[in-house]
Design a protein around this nucleic acid. Structure first.
Lengths: 210, 210
DNA sequence: GCAGAATGTAGTCGATGTCAACATTGAAGG
DNA sequence: CCTTCAATGTTGACATCGACTACATTCTGC
């Protein structure tokens, strides 16, 4: 996990060297193990071998730390989808498929981190920059969706709503232990494949029969 | 809100009369206003005009209170969908449609309560009874889905997975303020109609073209 | 090197969760 | 009616946490 711990003299140096990143990393781990409630600045300080007030130099409050956790998670999620789209043929449908698939794969592979990003207690106190990042992310999703859209005359807002809802819902059910236990085992790759297919099939569906 | 507050002599009686229910009700309100972090046993006790240790008579710990909040929310959500299905024609497709619609409508009309139910910090410490209730709820959803299924030879687990994912995702995007702000305004009724239509259209889709 | 910024430490205060001991009420049974 | 006892609420206490202040140490630009 932490590379700093392996260095000689760790824990005795006056300066930690990367306390801010270590705090976020450890916070994500704690959230995954015991939930947001279990995240305490003093506890993280103990885990990292620094004094109880050291985190205050990097985060003015516990909420600020959680906001940083949320922003870090969104950064990683966005980076994962961006990389997948970049390493993809220049075809709108393929790009949309790659994006949706990468989103779901990241959530499935990092359930603790995804739950942290999706946790209202984490995002509640986020800075405006998080909202801006998510808006930019959504805008890219929407442009990918529009490019891949087969029919015209469809309300793009509604289609986008459904895309996001399907992605969020699938990722949540995959990442949330409560749902995983109740709904039974579903192969993650199958679930991703199904969801991505549904996203592609539904793109631009104008008026489905009721 | 609270009928107890209107009674004469409120706040001076030694016994509250319905402290347990009042605590859960007030906790849901606080979660909706300021998040789970803002829920404190002492704060709720102050709000209800009882001593700081009175809640301990009904909830052994803060986690137990949150577990009760989750269970209360699931009870209401299940009751809402059950009522919708009961007041419905005896047609499998209609019943599935009514169930999905009622689920989404309840989430849209009670965003704070739905977010509380869906909050990992609330459900994390739930008793086994909550898992049992959700299992029973899912079983009824699955039987409704199977009855309404058009084709055979489909993996029921995967179809169920997608039904739950679509419902959870749509409800989440509707109820979560972060998504509501970022994704823009979408008429709730339109979103519900679209999602329910998609659920019905997708039922039993065997092998969508990739 | 050296001055100041950056970072970490030590001490403190109010608020919280939790426990134990005590007080008050309501209900069941004589 | 009255007594008893479980249910419920109160008071007091303690450890922990977030946040603040004052002080110590290290890093960096000049």
């Amino acid at each position: 996990m932490s590379t700093l711990k392996d260095e000689p003299g760790y824990g005795r140096r006056y300066h930690h060297g990367g306390l801010r990143e270590a705090l976020v990393e450890r916070a994500v781990a704690v959230i995954g193990e015991a939930g947001v409630d279990a995240v305490s600045l003093r506890g993280l300080a103990r885990d990292l071998g620094v004094s109880h007030a050291a985190p205050a130099r990097h985060f003015a409050s516990r909420d600020a730390l959680l906001a940083a956790v949320a922003e870090d998670g969104v950064d990683r999620l966005v980076a994962a989808t961006e990389a997948a789209v970049a390493a993809c043929v220049d075809d709108p449908v393929e790009q949309l498929k790659a994006m949706a698939s990468a989103y779901l794969r990241w959530a499935a592979e990092h359930p603790a981190h995804y739950n942290a990003v999706r946790n209202p207690e984490v995002t509640r106190h986020a800075h405006a920059s998080l909202g801006a990042k998510m808006s930019a992310f959504f805008a890219r999703q929407q442009s990918a969706l529009l490019a891949a859209q087969s029919r015209s005359g469809v309300d793009p807002g509604l289609t986008m709503f459904r895309l996001v809802a399907v992605l969020v819902g699938t990722a949540t059910v995959m990442a949330d232990p409560l749902y995983r236990n109740v709904i039974g085992k579903v192969a993650t790759s199958d679930a991703i494949e199904q969801t991505v297919s549904a996203v592609l099939r539904d793109r631009g569906a104008a008026d489905p029969d009721a």
